[in-house]
Amino acid sequence: MSVVKADWQEGFLAGDTRALARAISAAENEPEVVHSFLQEHSGRLGRAHVVGITGPPGAGKSTLTGQLAVTLVARGYSVGLLLVDPSSPFTGGAILGDRLRLPDLAQGSSSQIYVRSLSSRGSMGGLSRATADAIKLLDAFGKDIIIVETVGTGQSETDIISVADSVVVLAVPGLGDDIQAMKAGILEIADLFVVNKADRDGADKTERELLSMLKLQASSSGWTIPVIKTVAIRNEGIADLADQLLAHYEFLQTSGLLLEVRTARVKSELNELLQLRLTQEFQKVVGAARYEEYTQQIVSGNISPYEAVNQLWQEFVSEIKRSASS
């Protein structure tokens, strides 16, 4: 009776949740299959609003994400959640504990919410390698809004901008002064700021610091970045956040920026795929044994890494030329 593992494509097109879940596993384990599926059904892509939620560990990202999803479903949207948690650098295992923070409605009582926990599987930028494909699958499945929650971030995990249309950066009171707020990195990528746990001391100060930082920032796009205070665990401020998110998406559409954002995304995706292909070809043509030899040469001090790269590159180019002429 049970669905055959590789056989999710038909069910996916028919709207079966189990098939969607299988498809996302395929994106993690055998991405080529998913890529050709998405290519075949590219007409289904590009319709969803992709929202990124990022911020430090313990800021309340999962709780906020869950409440936001429930609020959006109540307004008639169907929502997909991708919750990314870190994997162990030693065993590759992971505890994916974001689901536990979701309110009951997001725990399975509503058919309009699909929730998937993803392990970062060694990626360092706050997402997992499969996240971009998982987003596309949810888009193709027909979700209106896809919310991606990154791993708890420090200052520079900014991968989320390469997949999200709207980026929400969470801050909490008491994590640093105005100099922290001036630093480059994660604070620069926000389309919306949220000060969560706003019932705590110092929330007003955090809000003021973010606002004054934003005043110094030249905004060329015409979008004014809002700072929204929330208490996610009590569902306070979430309706306001939902309003502002939808307003941001509308702004992206009417201003033509959405096309710009998505063009930039295609470019970086192309780059990434090209790099991957190049690395694979390189390994294939030059061979792992040569890598090992050069590594040993570098370690024993016979050759510098820069010279090694030059020589490897020469080998690669001449090998390619030879196989082209034969």
């Binding site: 065993t91 994916l96 926990s117």
Partner: peptide, 10 residues
């Protein structure tokens, strides 16, 4: 987790 599995805790 320590055995390398991905564990979702509800």
């Amino acid at each position: 987790r320590d055995a390398g599995m991905e564990v979702i805790y509800t």
